[in-house]
């Protein structure tokens, strides 16, 4: 099979590290060759962050470049728009509808663009958007947005739910397990 590409994008501190760890574990358990790549350090301090997950028979490059992503999984609308160029024309976006103002917007130097998701849809791009923050709060912890997103993403994969649950059990610390499993379910059902 040709290599598939998933990009996880968001704002530093939103939980993309756990999401990529979980996907990496899941896809490895399906006997794929897998590479996961992220950047640590300065960009993590509230900056725009991206993680690449690639899987297939044989994966060489650890990164995804423009026009290559089969999926963009996004924690924040502005980040969805920022990384749009990386999506394949037939690719799928799974995004949270959360908006977080970046510093140039906070200082008033720039404004947060309006109706970004409608503008993306107008380009005939497949967008699956949901209020992940609300669902994460419903699950019991606002920080479980990552699991809500993965629940939603699981729709597009031909991998049994039991395997996803297994990966969650493996990657999530015991005391947060219940909330995260619920968040996954809520994202899946949404």
């Amino acid at each position: 099979m040709t290599t598939k590409n998933i990009m996880i994008v968001g704002v530093g501190g939103q939980g993309s590290v756990l999401a990529s760890k979980l996907l990496g574990h899941l896809l490895t358990s399906q006997n794929y060759d897998v590479k996961v790549s992220e950047v640590h350090g300065m960009s993590q301090r509230g900056g725009s962050v991206v993680t690449y997950v690639r899987y297939g028979d044989k994966v060489f490059s650890p990164v995804i470049d423009k026009g290559e992503a089969d999926f963009i999984v996004s924690f924040e609308i502005l980040e969805t728009a920022r990384w749009l160029e990386y999506l394949k024309p037939e690719g799928q976006i799974v995004t949270s509808t959360q908006q977080i103002d970046p510093m140039p917007v906070i200082t008033g130097a720039m404004s947060y663009p309006e109706n970004l998701l409608d503008k993306i849809k107008a380009l005939n791009i497949k967008v699956d958007a949901l209020d992940c923050v609300k669902l994460a709060e419903e699950a019991g912890n606002v920080k479980s947005v990552n699991l809500v997103l993965l629940g939603r993403l699981s729709h597009y994969f031909d991998i049994p739910e039991s395997k996803w649950i297994e990966a969650i059990n493996f990657c999530v610390p015991k005391k947060f397990l219940e909330v995260n499993l619920k968040a996954f379910e809520l994202g899946k059902k949404a």
Partner: peptide, 19 residues
Amino acid sequence: KISTSKLNEQIPPRPPVMC
């Protein structure tokens, strides 16, 4: 050459900030 989708929109940068 690759083909990509792009919004005709100015996307504000999101530089790292003090927490």
